[in-house]
Design a protein around this nucleic acid. Sequence first.
DNA 1: CTATTTTGTTTAGTATAACTAACTATATTT
DNA 2: AAATATAGTTAGTTATACTAAACAAAATAG
Lengths: 150, 150
Amino acid sequence: MSLYDKTEHLYTLIHKINRKLRNPKFDSTDQHVLPPITKVQWWILKTVWERKQCTAGYLAKMIGVRPSTMSQMLDRLENADFIVRFTDAADARVRIICLTDKGQNIFHHSESKFVEKLAGPLGYLTPEEQQFLILLMEKLARHFPKQNND
Amino acid sequence: MSLYDKTEHLYTLIHKINRKLRNPKFDSTDQHVLPPITKVQWWILKTVWERKQCTAGYLAKMIGVRPSTMSQMLDRLENADFIVRFTDAADARVRIICLTDKGQNIFHHSESKFVEKLAGPLGYLTPEEQQFLILLMEKLARHFPKQNND
DNA sequence: CTATTTTGTTTAGTATAACTAACTATATTT
DNA sequence: AAATATAGTTAGTTATACTAAACAAAATAG
């Protein structure tokens, strides 16, 4: 199998696995009582949660979208009462994003919901295989041209 | 590191790598002359190409979307002259999808464009690591609850 | 053999995610 | 003080998803 074929095969595998991990919002087999958030929304909440607070621009860089996209994503999250925005005292251009109580709540509840989808299949690998898979994926991720400083 | 933490970490890695492989259409660093198609569109063309022809319903199952979603995706691809739809002679409800010459062309040209994004980073792994990564990803993919028969 | 149900696809309406381009407001530099 | 750069927002567009409702054709049931 040529390198190109290998690459294509792996590309296919990543694509397929990722689709299996997709938004529960768009997943009819998943009927939950919790207000549904999408994977990217969860990602934003996670990013804010990890730093307690951060700017809109930082979020855009971390998530890998344009500031305009982030602005509208934040509109939706603010509308849903998951985050609050306020102006930085030091620089009035900058908007500081924080989680509300509701936002923290939904984040923690959704987290398991998202990660669980992967937990089952991963359980079929031996601990050694799991460890090695993570190692290889880390190595792979490291070598992508980085646009966001992570 | 607990199993949950491992799972979450892997989830993060898959998420990030997948975002790096995203639609060139939404990627400002990628300026191409070729008419841009999205990853999912490429996936649809690929699926049709592999069987020469198939039904709309089959495509929906393979891609993992509702028939209504597929119908609209096919509208766009048909509008762009990448596919043609015609009615099955044996069962007038069924729509057969085929690639046009233009569709085959764009598929082949886009394929490398998509796969290339992965080729670079994958090149940093040794051939053994590449092989093992594919093996582990295959094993992982196998154990997802299958909704589409692939 | 008509009447009902199931199947395959489409249409309509909605929401999210992503983009570019143009704009506003504040900071920084010249 | 004027010009430029930075941080975010707004407006407009496209693609991807969904549900619900419709439609036509095929399959089944009484």
